[in-house]
Design a protein around this nucleic acid. Sequence first.
DNA 1: TCCTCATATAAACTTATTTTTATATGTTAT
DNA 2: ATAACATATAAAAATAAGTTTATATGAGGA
Lengths: 136, 136
Amino acid sequence: MSVRSDEFGVKIMEELLSVFKALSEETRLRIIKLLEQGELCVCDITAALDMVQPKVSFHLSALKEAGLIKDRKQGKWIHYSLNEKDLFRRMLLLSACERMQDSSIAGDSKRLKAFLRTKNTDGKVVSLRSKGRCCG
Amino acid sequence: MSVRSDEFGVKIMEELLSVFKALSEETRLRIIKLLEQGELCVCDITAALDMVQPKVSFHLSALKEAGLIKDRKQGKWIHYSLNEKDLFRRMLLLSACERMQDSSIAGDSKRLKAFLRTKNTDGKVVSLRSKGRCCG
DNA sequence: TCCTCATATAAACTTATTTTTATATGTTAT
DNA sequence: ATAACATATAAAAATAAGTTTATATGAGGA
């Protein structure tokens, strides 16, 4: 039982724990459910959940730390999306999302859609590469 | 959106959370890994983990509450085992156990085996229905 | 350059979870 | 009946996680 193999073991356990911990909080599950529909930036998620932005950032960082989501920087914005690279995480994300098809999170999706509408109809056409405003 | 369906949704979310929360603690993952080998009573697990008994009971109750393990009373003893009824939980238990094949938990299994040996060789034959001592 | 926006980070605070220690409950052996 | 044992539970103490409020950073636009 070498030091090296012990450290390897500890890492595996810590990784496993960080994934389950990330999934064991309601806000984070709601974020995951929102991201099921595709890439979203922080202000989208903040609007959908109707929460203050640092709170959302806090949870996004836990999810990212656990390897469940990834981010993509684009100018001022950071777009988050589900991390589909790893099969284990993918399975967890899928089965969690599958279970969350209920009315308790319907409001999130509703608010998201409303917010995305205002983003695209405030006079400026917002394309993927646009430099316009992100939040209405 | 009736009250009934809201309550239903809340229950689903809470159930999902309780399962992930149960899996997001190291002691509990170690217990699950031990139970992979089969039914164990509290004193077995306590010896294997080298922890105080109320701590083990505390974590067992969290796992049971989440539906991940079940118990069976037999005289003075309570035997715990993985709950294989539900497919989702079964998948989680399996994939968690699969990942825990490392040296950081090898000691648990080693201590368990040593403890089980003393249980069966302290002069009394301990059968399944035995009324003898459980702990050496 | 200066201002605004999107997001992150830090510090103080609040809440939740875990651990410990002590004790209760129920079972079997004497 | 009494004692020993296996386990649970409760209360207090310790630790961890989440929330809030304020501020920092870095990118565009004016």
